[in-house]
Design a binder for these strands. Structure first.
Length: 561
RNA sequence: GCCCCCGUAGCUCAGUUGGAUAGAGCAACUGAUUCCUAAUCAGUAGGUCACGUGUUCGAAUCACGUCGGGGGUACCA
């Protein structure tokens, strides 16, 4: 079953009627009323279009409602309410058919082709390979991975990518930090103090992989950094696999500096293109990009006036010549040339100045404005029983993603990271998350699933899917549960529209609540075999939606708890 | 200075491109288990949606301003 959403069916009927009254189609939008007394769907078109029609909202609503085609398997009734809302009451048959479909094939429920195969690229985490992944990376990983899964389900050709900054000054500093550890001298300013650097240094000595002859050579130090960075990057992949996040592609920055057949590197050709478009000028020995003309607050340096003194030259590492703007622009140009129509970047909270610069350079290269979409993933305040835990990768004190997985587990961590809107600062209390208690919503949702599985294991639970009379489901609790289930596709669609996966956690908690409530009021397995069959199907449908929803977040749905 | 995010119940937060009587969880208090998992459920209580002005049929939501909290403002990436 490919869901041809009820909303689109209702909307198109409504649009047709509205056309008679001169109301343009895009204005017809359905929403789910907060209060269930107002039906399952509602439309405020009569209120919003008073100007175009010159009619009183109430009068227009009456006309629309009488002209709307009702049917037994879709919309039972259209009711005019309040100042002029159109409330749609969906038929029992609609819900029954829906439930049967869900039980037959759970993975299809919520699947849609609304994305029309659009190619979207989600870039996230993209942590520098200079230290272990931290909690902000973990938050971005949870969000990005979940978005990709949901976008795929909604018919987008969605891809995930990790951008690896495998060069530049930071890599040199990483090498210098390793050397400092081995030589037991002071770690350079801006270097890396973490324990992992020390561990790596020790392993080099142990395996006799450190050359004391060459150790003062800048080239040697740089390569030391590169080698270590490669190790760290592999560790990132291992950690992310543990976190159930896999990337379709790992894009290495170094690739952008390699000469192509036209004897230009992607980086160099970005500079050339900008120069061709007269978007640059020289000043004080540096090459500037006229970012100010493209929306940035000021012009930006593209090519530095000098490389880091006495250290590296362009042949050795081109990143000593160009600022980050050049390779990053080349990278996004590459995304565009690969045929993506949208590049979504999940960035850390310290990157917001960067967004305007990036938009400016892409604009100068005549890439459409809406191609690049940056989302700032706000910071994570890690706590332990209410006390702040400070994070600092470079200082080497702090909690890594590996620590977090170890302590609270993947399911809990992912759920917590997905609970809040992306733009809000997130408090993550490790001790709270560890508690297997009512504080912890992951267990609440998972428990609902396990409970259903337990019911389905009962001896009386066999053959529930034959000759089902879903009309037996008549109590308020049963009908409410059914309606919550039916909202799943709408929930996913809303996540796609808003790029906000937390909506799914809110939904699943509500679904679990509806189930627990139903469960506490009614027995599923009773003497009445028809009723039992209908309730078993309702349970199975609920379990399927919970499992599918959790799986979209990379979280397991346990059979037993 | 400029830019971004946030401000909703004691705490942590939802609030569906502006909609109908602003909602959950935790904490507090009261109650529910002879019966499919009590990791559950029910009830009570808790609000000047930071503040002000504006926009309109209608504002927690939009605009402007003020206050408060956090972050950012590199020839680092």
């Amino acid at each position: 079953m490919l869901e041809n959403s009820i909303e689109s069916v209702i909307t198109s009927s409504l649009v047709e009627i509205c056309r008679k009254y001169g109301i343009p189609a895009p204005q017809v939008v359905l929403e789910i009323p907060r209060d269930k007394k107002h039906g399952e769907l509602s439309c405020n078109i009569a209120l919003t279009s008073t100007r175009q029609t010159g009619m009183k909202p109430r009068d227009l609503a009456e006309k629309l409602s009488t002209e709307f085609p009702t049917s037994k398997d879709l919309v039972d009734a259209v009711i005019v309410a309040g100042p002029g809302f159109l409330n749609f009451k969906l038929s029992a048959l609609y819900f029954h058919n829906l439930l049967k479909d869900i039980v037959k094939d759970s993975s299809c429920f919520g699947t849609s082709d609304e994305g029309s195969g659009e190619r979207w690229l989600f870039e996230f985490v993209s942590a520098n390979p200079t230290g272990p992944l931290n909690v902000v990376n973990a938050r971005a990983a949870s969000i990005g991975d979940t978005l990709v899964r949901i976008f795929k389900k909604r018919g987008y050709d969605a891809h995930s990518e990790f951008y690896v900054n495998d060069g530049g000054n930071q890599i040199r500093l990483l090498g210098a930090s390793v050397r400092a550890r081995i030589e037991n001298v002071e770690i350079p300013e801006g270097g890396y103090h973490g324990e992992y650097v020390y561990e790596y240094a020790k392993s080099l000595i142990k395996n006799k992989e450190y050359n004391t002859e060459l150790n003062s050579s800048e080239l040697y130090i740089y390569n030391l950094g590169r080698r270590f960075a490669q190790e760290i990057q592999k560790e990132h992949k291992v950690t992310l696999d543990r976190f159930r996040v896999s990337f379709d592609n790992w894009f290495f920055e170094s690739k952008l500096h390699i000469l192509r057949s036209d004897q230009n590197s992607p980086v160099a050709s970005v500079v050339n293109s900008l120069q061709d478009k007269d978007a640059t000028y020289e000043s004080d020995g540096a090459l500037y990009f006229k970012a100010g003309e493209y929306g940035d607050s000021k012009d930006r340096v593209l090519r530095k006036s000098h490389s880091v003194p006495g250290i590296l030259d362009e042949d050795f590492d081109p990143r000593q010549i160009y600022t980050y703007i050049v390779p990053d622009t080349a990278y996004h140009l590459d995304k565009y040339q690969r045929g993506f129509i949208k590049a979504v970047d999940l960035l850390g909270p310290d990157h917001h100045g960067y967004i305007i610069s990036m938009k400016a350079s892409l604009k100068a290269l005549e890439i459409p404005d809406n191609f690049y979409h940056a989302i700032l993933v706000q910071q994570v305040n890690l706590k332990r029983d209410g006390e702040e835990v400070k994070m600092s990768k470079r200082a080497g004190v702090g909690i890594t993603l590996d620590d977090l997985i170890e302590e609270v587990g993947v399911d809990t961590a992912r759920f917590f990271f997905l609970r809040r809107t992306i733009s809000s600062h997130l408090d993550f209390d490790i001790e709270l998350a560890k508690r297997h208690s009512e504080d912890n919503p992951v267990y609440y949702v998972q428990y609902a699933h396990a409970r259903i599985m337990s019911i389905l294991r009962q001896p009386g639970a066999k053959d529930f899917d034959k000759n089902v009379h879903l009309e037996c489901l008549t109590t308020e609790e049963e009908l409410d549960l059914l309606k919550v289930i039916a909202r799943f596709p709408w929930t996913l669609s809303s996540i796609v529209r808003n790029l906000e996966p937390h909506i799914l956690t809110v939904y699943l908690i509500e679904l679990a609540r509806s189930f627990h409530f139903f469960y506490s009021k009614h027995r599923v397995i009773t003497d009445n075999s028809e009723l039992t069959a209908a309730r078993l199907m309702l349970c199975k449908g609920t379990a399927n939606v919970i499992a599918e929803g959790l799986s979209l977040m990379g979280i397991e749905a346990p059979e037993v708890m």
